[in-house]
């Protein structure tokens, strides 16, 4: 289960970020500081996002799921932030269709094959608009963890 592995130090409520690079620096920087990613992780995120954008529009709620290749990752983890102000991302699979992201799920993935069930579960969670709207309102780390726990128990 994802919720069991969530680490409070990787959850940020009402994060104040001015643009997507700022999001990468703040959340990615936390993953580096907490020992989940290598020093070049943030640069790698920014580069990858240019080639393969990760914004998604889920029934009108904008989210982003930035990630990199395993080369920049030390330990498997997921950082979650709800943003104080929406930040523009480009939608996954589109050339330049923007989406205002309000939630960010940043993944440090060490072995996609091994974590595939967990990644699938994350996709199931983020495709539920009601869960997203509750996550948007969450004011602290525990609230985010319990919303995800509740959802996972229904999967």
């Amino acid at each position: 289960m994802i919720w069991e592995e969530l680490n409070e130090s990787l959850i940020m409520n009402h994060l104040d970020a001015k643009d997507s690079s700022d999001v990468f620096e703040k959340i990615g920087g936390t993953l580096i500081r907490e020992g989940y990613a290598k020093d070049d992780y943030v640069d790698a995120l920014i580069e990858r996002e240019k080639d393969f954008p990760t914004g998604l529009d889920i029934g009108g709620i904008g989210i982003a799921i930035p990630h990199t290749s395993v080369d920049h990752v030390l330990k498997h983890g997921i950082a979650i932030a709800n943003l104080k102000h929406p930040v523009q991302f480009i939608q996954m699979g589109m050339d330049d269709e923007p989406v205002d992201a309000q939630l960010v799920f940043m993944m440090a993935v060490t072995d996609p094959g091994k974590h595939v069930d967990q990644l699938q579960r994350l996709v199931d969670i983020i495709q539920d608009r009601d869960v997203l709207s509750r996550l948007l309102e969450a004011d602290n780390q525990n609230e985010i963890i319990s919303i995800i726990k509740d959802k996972e128990e229904t999967l």
Partner: peptide, 16 residues
């Protein structure tokens, strides 16, 4: 009309 990177597990999983 969505172009998903076939080498990205997250892209494929999110593709529905």
């Amino acid at each position: 009309n969505r172009h998903i990177n076939a080498k990205s597990i997250m892209g494929i999983l999110s593709g529905g």
